[in-house]
Amino acid sequence: MTKHRIFSVSVASVYPHYVAKAEKKGRTKAEVDEIIRWLTGHSQQTFDDQLAKAVNFEDFFAQAPGMNPSRVLITGVVCGVRVEDVEEPTMREIRYLDKLIDELAKGKSMEKILRQ
């Protein structure tokens, strides 16, 4: 089975779109970064390093310092696909991130987004 092409796309190339989506709805780049750090366990420095290296999504999630165990609480639909039903592990991580950014853009509080 061939891998989905999003796996080979650099996180750095998509990241500005996440930030733009959030800022368009009055949210901030700092909030986007906080979500990504919460999900992956990256510090701001290691996240910035991953962006600078143009690491692809597959490697970004595979090399994450510590995926947040509470991410399994993320449910709902992204692009017509129910996040909790995605079987491929890397694709599920990508969908988790997409869902969190969607929640940010929809005005949810950071406390609720970060499942606290």
Results as ranks from 00 to 15, higher is better:
T2G: 04
K3G: 02
H4G: 07
H4K: 14
R5F: 10
R5N: 07
I6D: 08
F7K: 11
S8Q: 14
S8A: 14
V9R: 15
S10W: 09
V11H: 12
V11W: 12
A12R: 14
S13F: 15
S13W: 13
P16M: 04
H17G: 15
Y18S: 10
V19P: 08
A20W: 05
A20Q: 12
A22G: 10
E23N: 02
K24C: 04
K25E: 07
K25T: 07
G26F: 02
R27Q: 03
T28E: 01
T28L: 00
K29H: 10
K29N: 06
E31P: 03
E31G: 00
V32M: 00
E34L: 09
I35K: 06
I35E: 05
I36Y: 03
R37F: 10
R37W: 01
L39W: 10
L39G: 01
L39H: 13
T40K: 03
T40Q: 06
G41Q: 02
H42A: 03
Q44Y: 04
Q45T: 00
T46Y: 07
T46E: 04
F47K: 00
F47I: 11
Q50N: 10
L51F: 04
L51T: 12
A52M: 07
V55G: 11
N56D: 13
N56T: 05
N56E: 02
N56I: 05
N56S: 12
F57I: 06
E58Q: 11
D59T: 15
D59N: 15
F60E: 09
F60R: 09
F61W: 07
A62D: 04
A62R: 01
Q63I: 03
Q63A: 06
A64I: 10
A64E: 10
P65I: 00
G66T: 04
P69G: 03
P69L: 03
V72I: 14
V72R: 03
V72G: 08
V72S: 04
L73E: 13
L73H: 11
L73D: 12
L73Q: 12
I74C: 01
I74L: 03
T75P: 13
T75H: 02
T75G: 08
G76L: 04
G76C: 09
G76I: 06
G76M: 02
G76F: 09
V78P: 14
V78T: 15
V78H: 15
G80S: 01
G80N: 08
V81C: 12
V81I: 15
R82F: 13
V83R: 10
E84M: 06
D85P: 07
D85C: 10
D85T: 12
D85E: 14
E87Q: 08
E87P: 07
M91R: 13
M91Q: 14
M91E: 14
R92P: 05
I94K: 11
R95K: 15
R95C: 14
Y96V: 07
L97W: 00
D98Q: 15
K99A: 13
L100T: 09
I101L: 09
D102A: 06
L104A: 08
A105F: 07
K106L: 12
K106H: 13
G107R: 07
G107E: 03
G107P: 00
S109C: 01
S109Q: 06
E111R: 15
K112A: 15
K112N: 15
I113G: 00
L114T: 02
L114D: 12
L114P: 04
R115Y: 10
R115F: 07
R115M: 06
Q116T: 02
Q116F: 07
